[in-house]
Design a protein around this nucleic acid. Structure first.
Lengths: 172, 172
DNA sequence: CGTTCGTTTGAATCCCATCAATTGTGGTGG
DNA sequence: CCACCACAATTGATGGGATTCAAACGAACG
């Protein structure tokens, strides 16, 4: 059994922990195809030394990530399955639309229900149940590996979603 | 209903988000008496500008905090009540003993069962049940607002605890 | 008159037992 | 990988009682 603790959109810097921390406490995996660019520690540390603004921006991004972690703890610790899933869908949607690297046409979630379960700390079966429920309520529509928003407003309410913790517009 | 997302020992720097982030997404509260020293943004930013090592140390502390957040998501999302509580007790114990500001005599948890519930995402009643269970198993002993370790080894196993995510000895 | 010492009171906290709801398990088929 | 079902287990909800602790009060005594 696995717990997914973080998701990233194309264009985001990843795994900054490696810069200063020795032991890795998690692993990375791509949900869809794509390219990955790597930057060596030495190079990045030099850049930060010469351009403090870069360091500041990276620090800010890390603080925002921390804020998102706190919200995930709350989400997984204190909300029931329906609220929890709705909240996650809201977060994913907002972050996706805000990413300048992603064509924000429709809303497509490139995850299996099992992966959704690993994000929310539930079982795949219960994900299925609850997703069906949200569909019956008219908030979303699901087909194979794709979830479409029917009522954005409704989903926000169902998920008690307030996106301020994402600190958008401060993306350093 | 509330979710506690972080605990700190005396001597630790707190709430670094405020340095660079506008909106506060959480609040602070002390469990025991004590003193708080505040450092102004301006002062701290100036210090970092003149002494890059300080900035680096703060950044590292923030990364470690992020690592702890990830572990909490896992703990709350994927472990049952017994394992979850045991894991939290282990983390608290290790961090307490490692803190140079705390006399590491016995093990005393200055929290009510309700606060413990807010940490683990359970109800106070279930905390009570599970604590009694751990006591019956001979892993801990509880009296009013105080939990004593009986079998550290056993508690580690019960909580599937591996403290590497705490990145001790790297406390910058 | 002020001090000392019990008593009362009330607020937290803990504990326990019952019942109900959410969530997990296992299995089948598409 | 998704959908669905029946059943089981974990966890939550509610209510009541026991315990601790401290503040408030009052009576006896110097």
């Amino acid at each position: 059994l696995r717990q997914i603790v973080s998701l990233h959109n194309p264009g985001e810097a990843l795994d900054l922990q490696q810069l200063l921390l020795d032991v890795a406490d998690h692993s990375l995996r791509m949900l869809t195809g794509g390219e990955v660019a790597t930057v060596g520690h030495r190079v990045l540390l030099d850049l930060i030394a010469r351009r403090p603004e870069v360091g500041s921006a990276i620090f800010k991004a890390t603080l925002i990530e921390g804020s998102i972690f706190r919200e995930w703890v709350l989400n997984v610790g204190r909300r029931d399955a329906r609220t929890r899933i709705a909240h996650f869908l809201c977060e994913f949607y907002v972050r996706l639309r805000k990413s300048p690297w992603v064509e924000a046409e429709g809303f497509d979630l490139p995850m299996t229900q099992e992966q959704l379960a690993d994000v929310t700390g539930l079982t795949p079966v219960h994900i299925n149940r609850t997703l069906k429920g949200l569909e019956k309520e008219g908030l979303i529509r699901c087909s194979r590996r794709s979830i479409a928003l029917v009522s954005w407003r409704g989903l926000q309410e169902a998920g008690q979603f307030d996106g301020r913790y994402l600190h958008l517009g401060q993306a350093a």
